[in-house]
Amino acid sequence: MRKHNFNPGPATIPTEVLAEAAQGLLEYQRTGMSIAEMSHRAPEIMALVEEASALVKSLYGFGDDFEVIWMQGGASAQLAIAPMNLLDKQHAVAIVNTGYWATKAIKAARELGQVEVLASSEATKFDHIPKEWNVPSNAQYFHLVSNETIDGTQWHQYPELSVPLVADMTSDFLTRPIPQEKFGLIFASAQKNFGITGTTCVVIRKDFLSQRTPRQIPTIFDYQTHINEQSLYHTAPTFSIYVALLALRWTQAQGGLHEMERRNAAKAKLLYTEIDRNPLFVGNVKTTDRSLMNACFQITKPELEVAFLEFAAQNDVVGIKGFPTVGGFRASMYNAMPLESVQLLVDLMRDFAKRH
Rank of each mutant, 00 (worst) to 15 (best):
Y233M: 02
H234A: 14
T235C: 07
A236W: 04
P237Q: 06
T238K: 13
T238V: 14
S240E: 01
V243T: 09
A244L: 01
A247M: 03
W250I: 07
Q252M: 10
A253K: 14
A253D: 15
Q254A: 08
Q254I: 09
L257Y: 07
L257I: 08
H258S: 13
E259L: 10
R262D: 07
N264R: 10
N264W: 07
A266M: 08
K269N: 12
K269C: 08
L270C: 09
L271M: 03
L271H: 01
L271Q: 04
L271G: 00
D276V: 01
D276F: 01
R277A: 13
F281L: 04
G283I: 03
N284D: 08
V285P: 05
R290N: 05
R290F: 10
R290D: 06
L292H: 15
A295C: 10
A295D: 05
Q298L: 11
T300K: 13
K301A: 14
P302N: 05
E303D: 12
E303G: 05
E305S: 07
E305W: 05
F308M: 05
F311S: 05
Q314S: 05
N315S: 09
D316W: 06
G319I: 03
K321E: 08
G322S: 02
G322R: 07
F323K: 07
V326I: 11
